[in-house]
Design a protein around this nucleic acid. Structure first.
Lengths: 211, 211
DNA sequence: CCTACCGATCGGTAGG
DNA sequence: CCTACCGATCGGTAGG
């Protein structure tokens, strides 16, 4: 509908992600959108309303993408790798999503929990059920703490994407041929896989051999 | 030496960790320390100087603790678990350390990298060398990307401690007998171990059996 | 009457 | 360490 509204949301996500909510002024958002401060207030009555709209847009997008990811990987080979790869892809396509969410986790955990519990919990439950079934069949380590495992994987996804600029500086490059984000994603998936499944899958090696 | 100086640093770490640097005003720090705004400027000429002093104190403390951790676990059983456990303990003892560092990673990666590269890199190199040697002996998966692995484990430690309030709300309690922080720490160590060593160590199970 | 803004300014607070 | 302030900028609102 409103062109300005969307521009405000896009610019605000970027600024909130990079500088944080408190360090972002309405005039900065105005400068990034070619609007004046007063115009922002016309669209969103308060600064906090902008933050909530950005968060809603992000969670709604994720809510739409997540089922598609799980369905697309419902069958076939390398289900686990594909699901994690798609989840990583969602944030890597726009790292500000990860940065903003990580900041919200730090700044307003209660606010995030309200929205999360309603919208995303059912899908986490699906993943948790799949893991618990794998435990029963013996495919997955019985020692896995399902909810804690999911949370740690989510944290790795969010933080490794959000802090990729720092990784570039600190981790250095083992293999200069591929970029750091790619290396971190591959290692994350390898760690998540290796620490979940009893029988070491050869899928990662197969990919290499086939290539 | 200066009693007020220390009070300012302790109160500032707490406020920076919880609210962020930009959202923390000098009068807030003054209120927490019983000082007035002008008095803070007497001890630290600028607000940024307080931040740097807090960061220095934190990194120096860690620089002192890290060698002790590595030495103490130089021999004996469950070296890996003990090293990770001690590292987790350092942040769990004062979660604001993890929150503050995570915020600095987001807000000022360049500034953090300057201090990190000089002080902590050599110790990361020690861990990296140990992992690379384990690869040669076949004890550790050859597919491990050493630097990426270390970085992902560091991220899990920092973020799981920093965001523990959110974990309490979102993860729920599989086992109400032990608290969430304990569950997350155990699962983190299990994941890190399982995804590194080829031969599944029975150390974690042994601990249980012996208890 | 509506939308999408503007220039100017409100009362308070920021770091110094 | 406090009082007394500064230039500027904060989020938000006024009438047009």
């Amino acid at each position: 509908m409103s062109e300005s509204r969307d521009k405000i949301l896009v610019a605000s996500l970027h600024l909130f992600a990079r500088r944080g909510y408190d360090a972002t002024s309405l005039s900065m958002i105005g400068e990034a959108t070619g609007l004046l401060k007063g115009s922002l207030v016309y669209h969103f009555s308060t600064k906090d309303a902008i933050r909530k709209a950005v968060l809603d847009g992000l969670l709604n997008r994720w809510k739409d993408v997540l089922p598609a990811i799980l369905m697309a990987a419902a069958s076939g080979e390398n289900r686990f790798e594909r699901i994690l790869g798609e989840a990583l892809g969602f944030f890597l396509a726009e790292p500000d999503r990860a940065r903003f969410l990580l900041r919200e986790c730090l700044d307003r955990p209660d606010d995030l929990q309200e929205r999360y519990a309603k919208q995303l919990e059912p899908w986490i439950a699906v993943v948790a059920d799949a893991i618990d079934k794998g435990k029963e069949t013996g495919e997955i380590y019985a020692t896995v703490n399902t909810r804690a495992y999911i949370w740690q994987v989510v944290l790795m996804i969010l933080s490794s994407v959000a802090l990729s600029p720092l990784a570039d500086l600190m981790v250095g490059e083992d293999d200069p041929r591929q970029d750091m984000a790619e290396q971190l994603s591959r290692e994350l998936i390898r760690m998540a896989h290796q620490s979940l499944f009893c029988t070491p899958k050869t899928s990662l090696k197969e990919e290499k051999d086939h290539g």
